[in-house]
Amino acid sequence: MTTMRTLIEIEMDTATANQAIADGTIEASMDKMMEMLKPEAAYFFARMGRRAALLVVDLPDEAAIVPTLEPAWLNLNADVTMTPCMNADELRTGLSRLNGS
Rank of each mutant, 00 (worst) to 15 (best):
E62N: 14
T81C: 14
L74Q: 01
W73A: 08
W73Q: 11
P60M: 09
M86K: 04
A63F: 12
N77Q: 02
P84A: 11
A72W: 07
N87L: 06
N75M: 02
P60G: 07
L59H: 05
A78Q: 00
L76T: 01
T68A: 15
P84F: 08
A88G: 04
L74I: 00
L69I: 15
P67I: 09
P84E: 09
E62F: 14
I65Y: 08
P84G: 08
A78W: 00
T83Y: 11
A63E: 13
D89E: 14
T83E: 04
N87Y: 05
W73D: 05
A88Y: 09
A78L: 02
E62W: 10
W73H: 10
W73F: 15
C85L: 07
V66D: 06
M86E: 10
D89C: 05
A72K: 08
N87S: 01
E70M: 15
L74H: 01
D89W: 11
A63D: 14
M86S: 12
C85T: 15
L69S: 12
L76A: 06
L74E: 00
D61T: 03
I65W: 09
V66Q: 03
P60W: 08
E70F: 14
D89V: 13
M82T: 10
I65F: 06
N77M: 02
L59G: 00
L59C: 00
M86N: 06
L59D: 01
T83V: 13
E90S: 03
T81M: 15
M86R: 07
A72R: 09
A72S: 13
P67S: 09
L69F: 12
D89Y: 12
A88Q: 11
P60E: 12
T83L: 14
A64W: 07
M82G: 01
T81P: 07
L69T: 14
L91Q: 06
D58H: 13
V80N: 01
E62G: 15
C85D: 12
M82P: 03
D89P: 06
P60K: 09
P71N: 13
L74Y: 02
N77I: 03
P67K: 10
P71Y: 11
T83H: 09
A64K: 04
M86P: 02
P60D: 13
L91Y: 13
V66I: 09
N75S: 01
T81G: 14
M82D: 01
P67C: 12
D79A: 13
N77G: 02
N87P: 03
A88H: 07
P67L: 11
A63C: 09
D79E: 14
L74M: 02
D89L: 08
V80S: 06
P67F: 03
T68R: 07
P71C: 13
W73S: 04
A72N: 10
D61N: 05
L76K: 03
T81V: 15
P67D: 05
A72H: 06
P71M: 11
A64F: 07
N87E: 02
T81A: 15
A88N: 09
V66L: 10
E62A: 15
P84H: 05
L91R: 05
P60N: 08
D79H: 08
P67G: 12
P60T: 06
